[in-house]
Design a protein around this nucleic acid. Sequence first.
DNA 1: GGCGCTTTGCAACAAATGTTTTATTAAATG
DNA 2: CATTTAATAAAACATTTGTTGCAAAGCGCC
Lengths: 290, 290
Amino acid sequence: MMVPFAQTLAARFDSLPAQLQKAARWIEAHPHDVALLSMREQAGRAGVQPATMTRLAQALGYDGYDTVRALHADALRHTRQPGLVATAARRNKLHAGTHEAAAQAMVQHCATQVGALADPPTLAALVRAAALIGQAKRVFSLGMRSSHAVAWHVWYALSLISDRAILLDGVGGVGFDAFAQARDTDVLFVCGVAPYTRAVVEAVMQARALGLRVVALTDSPLSPLISQGDPALIVPTDSASFLHSMAPAFALAECLVALVARGDDPALLARLDGLDRQLAAFNTYHPSKG
Amino acid sequence: MMVPFAQTLAARFDSLPAQLQKAARWIEAHPHDVALLSMREQAGRAGVQPATMTRLAQALGYDGYDTVRALHADALRHTRQPGLVATAARRNKLHAGTHEAAAQAMVQHCATQVGALADPPTLAALVRAAALIGQAKRVFSLGMRSSHAVAWHVWYALSLISDRAILLDGVGGVGFDAFAQARDTDVLFVCGVAPYTRAVVEAVMQARALGLRVVALTDSPLSPLISQGDPALIVPTDSASFLHSMAPAFALAECLVALVARGDDPALLARLDGLDRQLAAFNTYHPSKG
DNA sequence: GGCGCTTTGCAACAAATGTTTTATTAAATG
DNA sequence: CATTTAATAAAACATTTGTTGCAAAGCGCC
């Protein structure tokens, strides 16, 4: 943990009076506690009067001890993801503040988030979800607003490997009416992040009522889209910019479909052969670059 | 960060009243701040009365909110950089050949690919593309098949921050006819990977003929979608499964939009405020989980 | 529609916080 | 040794903290 406070302290430590040094020494040894404990508690543990802490902060040029603990709080916040700011800054030969630097920060932030999806709970949920979708008679895919792209892509990818996929969407899909023919052998894949669209939440409730299993791809374990007992895929949505990021959700959805496709479906190979041949002969698709 | 509080919360979340859920959701989304911020500050950020936080703590069986923040403080103290060693150790726990292992391989492969996008040429292209889109009068977004989700998402995200975006798509969009009104102050964002759809390639040629600048997001420097002199974003599409992966393309597209939004548009802040408020008050969107 | 219950917002409360002031002690200088 | 200065301890201070009591507002149920 690198707190700018530490440097300031080291510079003036020698010229501080005895009690202030005592306090400083404790802070230096317990940087984590600075933000988590009250000043009086820290003073007690350091064997020093409460006033001493304030005086130390002021002696180092800060307004008061609250400034010091705010500094340590920030440090605590930022140390949890070393790959984020740290690496970006480390390998950053680009000047800070340039657009390239911002772009780099965004991309790396995104990569970190996707990498973080490889934790056991998420992987387990992924496998469960894939199994569920794999044995479903039909798979409905639902997602609106930011989540529409994810839902659409899942539907499209599933369409490639089977004919069991149905997109639930007002515009491009068949709309919610398709639920009329839904049965308990079907599965609903739903993607949604805060603020959750009311229609989507209600669709999930309806699906549950009809006996469908629900695979939820959402942004929180507390999401209203999650159904008890069914797999839930949790992804981060915070991004370096203000728009929340759907890239982790998209990536995870793609992995989900890939896992589904991994099932040893004999008919699948035929489809893939067709796809391969199509890809090999893509020349017919774009005869010239123009 | 694994806080025992999170489990307790998840267990009883459904049976909590609306305001308590709102508070709980904020806590779940900002576990680091629980120990670092005062309860009143947290209540303010969560859009909730201070009393609600105390009530939540008590509803979950704790004495008061201080107990909750003590729990989070401990968690904060004990989570030292889980990124490196933890993941490596975790990696070995999964048996090779299991579905979990396959899922992990996919996710990590994807993360690696996204991380690889942070190389100088791509970043430079990203910045150029963002600048181009930023100063465009209108932005057409085009992508079919696998690339549709990307094109749609770009269109949607641009719609959030401006009203200059037009989706070129047969189903949900206005179709290619919109090119009739296209002018050379407009920009075409096109996404496409092999096998390139003929209609898309032709649309790009048409756009060039009309004098539009073209931002291409594609899978090869030799792609027919790339226009000489205009920025080209190259992404990998190979995946651990047979389906080629669009996740890197999606991630890069999202970064592109974020960069565009980075421009200091005064009207943007108003939009964002609205978005934030909407998000803070999202309780109105899903009154109960049912 | 009326009645019971729960939930919510508001305001007051005591406790604890960080700071400042005052008094006391130690150290230093002539 | 006397006197001035700095350093420490103690207490008083205004804020802010987390909590609780109470009234208003929802809400479901007969």
